[in-house]
Design a protein around this nucleic acid. Sequence first.
DNA 1: GTGTATCGTGGAAGAAGTAAACGATTGGAG
DNA 2: CTCCAATCGTTTACTTCTTCCACGATACAC
Lengths: 162, 162
Amino acid sequence: MTSTKSEIPAKSHFLPEELLASTAFLLARVGVGIKLRTFAEIEKAGFSGPQYGVLALLGEGATETQASIADVLGLDRSQLVSELDALEERGLIERRRDPNDRRRHTVALTAAGKRQLVRLRAIVKRIEDSFLEPLDEAARTQLHDTLLRIACSHDRRYKRES
Amino acid sequence: MTSTKSEIPAKSHFLPEELLASTAFLLARVGVGIKLRTFAEIEKAGFSGPQYGVLALLGEGATETQASIADVLGLDRSQLVSELDALEERGLIERRRDPNDRRRHTVALTAAGKRQLVRLRAIVKRIEDSFLEPLDEAARTQLHDTLLRIACSHDRRYKRES
DNA sequence: GTGTATCGTGGAAGAAGTAAACGATTGGAG
DNA sequence: CTCCAATCGTTTACTTCTTCCACGATACAC
């Protein structure tokens, strides 16, 4: 097996009660765990984590500019360039100059990009299910609602009022 | 919302519905957010993230060996060395050779270390409260219980026979 | 026009994470 | 007991990942 990193330690030592009793700690631990695991699987499928983020973001249909993509995904703008280069080279996205503001590039998914996104969504969904497996339907709904409330109260980017 | 292109602002800083609808995504987002925020505050207080981890782990009273600390915290053993150096230099921890196995170092908190830990706990608690603020007591308990179940099913380190 | 700010891009400096090698020490096989 | 392999903490070197700044092109205010 290709050993990436610490999935499960050889010696199963225990975490201190203090940390286990902290909801914030658990939240961070589980959240980071999901992210790491997801990125690992995405990479096995031939993409970087941020690349999946870009595809998922563009999957909504909206054509974004590079700056807005970087903002939403929390990436540095210069960092995004190489990720987009890779995606464009594979024919999954298209960069076009924005006719309204010729400094900007509008980025959009191609048909091939949409197909890849479907594939990646399946992978991510599988991981999500494996994490939520111990929860019944009611608990999942409750968890989702709770997380959404926390996210909204701390980041305006989540609030989308119509 | 209608569907002409100019409806979509150049800077749409909203996350796609696809991601917002994913519990795993929210979990990762919120979890990473808490971790980043906590580490940032901890650093303002003069410690690195892993350093707080070490203090919290030792706060339980148990004296651990360096290898076990690294395992539990998910750090590389070589990485832990410099963190412990810093803590020891400030007189917050003590390294002693284990008389039973002279290759090992046992690490324990000093009195000063315990005092610092109290201070750091307050900081972390404040952040936790700010994140959980939109939740009532019942929702917090429910969230904690749910997270614990997810954590247990994915990491042996959480299971503590009760 | 002129100056200032933003866009995407590239490169340089810095930090962080990863891997390999070392001396000291232990435990086991013969 | 001796020898050998393995473990522990540590140092060093290497490789990635971030962060920061400068650049040409473009937009906008005055």
